[in-house]
Amino acid sequence: QKSIRNNGGGVYNHIFYFNGMSDSDTRCKAGKLHDALVKEFGCVEAFYHEFEEKAMSVFGSGYAWLTVDQNGKLKIITTANQDTPIVQNLCPVLTIDVWEHAYYLKHYNERIAYIYNWFQVVDWECANMHYLECLKCRN
């Protein structure tokens, strides 16, 4: 189980992370996810703040995730190492890798600068697609 979680989780998490970013102008198209973020967090800025806090709270290696729970509600969680939200019966919408190796060459120990820059390249169209798929699976 441990080697499957570490290796399989590592592959899954990194593919999900890298596929969730874009330099395309379409990244601003969050669709229904935008509405859900406003409903759940009050405004997009409040979501950014809470997500940033969660990402900063990871000690050592891990990820911060935006997920959908069993009731279709958005939830921000963190996972350690290569753990995924799937084992918690949560459906992932987007993630940021907060392992130091993800940002150290550019941002050194400034994780907060990395998180800010990551928000500039999130592919919101892709995240919206994941969100809609999560809702289908929950119904």
Rank of each mutant, 00 (worst) to 15 (best):
K73L: 05
Q70R: 09
D23C: 07
T79C: 05
A80G: 11
T79V: 07
A113I: 11
A46I: 05
E133H: 03
Y108R: 13
C91F: 08
R111H: 07
L74T: 06
R5V: 15
L33K: 04
E53T: 11
L37W: 11
W65S: 02
F16T: 07
A46Q: 12
E50Y: 10
F16Y: 10
K136M: 04
T78N: 05
C126P: 02
E110P: 12
V11S: 03
Y114M: 01
K54D: 05
N71M: 09
K73Y: 03
D35H: 09
Q70Y: 04
G8E: 07
Y131C: 09
I77L: 03
F119R: 11
S57L: 02
A30C: 12
Y114P: 06
Y103C: 01
K106E: 15
A30I: 08
F59A: 12
N7H: 11
W118P: 00
K32Y: 01
K39I: 08
D25F: 13
H34M: 11
D123R: 02
I86C: 02
L66Q: 01
H34N: 14
I15M: 06
S61T: 08
D123A: 02
V68L: 01
K29C: 05
L135S: 04
R27Q: 04
R138Q: 08
V68R: 04
V68I: 02
L33P: 08
D23G: 13
S57Q: 10
Q88V: 02
Q70P: 00
D23M: 12
S24L: 11
H130A: 01
F119Q: 09
L66P: 00
G62I: 04
I112F: 12
K136Q: 07
S22D: 05
Q120K: 13
I77S: 00
F41S: 01
M56E: 10
C28W: 14
M129V: 01
S22Y: 12
E40A: 15
D23I: 11
A46P: 01
C126D: 05
E53D: 13
S24P: 00
H49E: 15
F59T: 10
G72C: 02
G20C: 00
F119W: 08
V87K: 15
K136F: 02
G31K: 14
Q70V: 06
F16R: 10
Y12F: 15
Y12G: 06
